[in-house]
Amino acid sequence: MIVADKKPVEEIIEYVKDCKKLLVLGCNECVTVCEAGGKKEAGVLASALRMYFANRGVEDALVDERTLERQCDHEYLEEIRDIADNYDAIVSIACGVGVQFTAEKYHSIPVYPGVNTCFLGATEQRGLWTERCQACGQCILAYTGGICPVARCAKRLLNGPCGGSSNGKCEINKELDCAWQLIIDRLKAIDRMDLYEKLFGIKDWSTDRAGGPRKVQREDVQI
């Protein structure tokens, strides 16, 4: 999933302090799972903003809350079509995709981000999410034992580990597993150490961020 983290309330207040009518827009997908931008968080943020305005004596402030199934699909975003014009601004607490898609659809209404979008990751335990994928566009996991050096090695080495790997940990942080140690352990477990012996060729990064904004176009599913 896309993992996000809540922005501090003071930062959000700074964006919207001059607004009178606000919509806090949550998303039922990834940001709900990582407890940053779902219905519950939309409620908390909206309530905090209402009290902020009331406490400042802004008498006619209105802060509504709404949570959509997704903010990255036209059909769900259309659900606020009829009410969007009631607001001076929208605070979207979806990931960066949701914030942007909302802004694109409601062209004349300012949309502010309520979370920091962090990475593609997994829930290791409640309250702990860690990165797994950088969406480089050319998956190499078949050769690395199912562990990604692009996302999990601090130097994204395709031929690791570097000389800083110590007791299975990365040189930049003793808490952090060395991705290449994990790869080697895993290759041993699946009896594929032959893959380690193979020199990894130079990667085509044009499918990564480097190639500019990307798209996936599937004619087989387009109408």
Binding site: V9, E10, V44, M51, Y52, N55
Partner: peptide, 12 residues
């Protein structure tokens, strides 16, 4: 604890 933090932030 979260609520306490929010209250402090908004001036309560």
């Amino acid at each position: 604890e979260q609520v306490q933090k929010i209250l402090n932030t908004i001036g309560l």
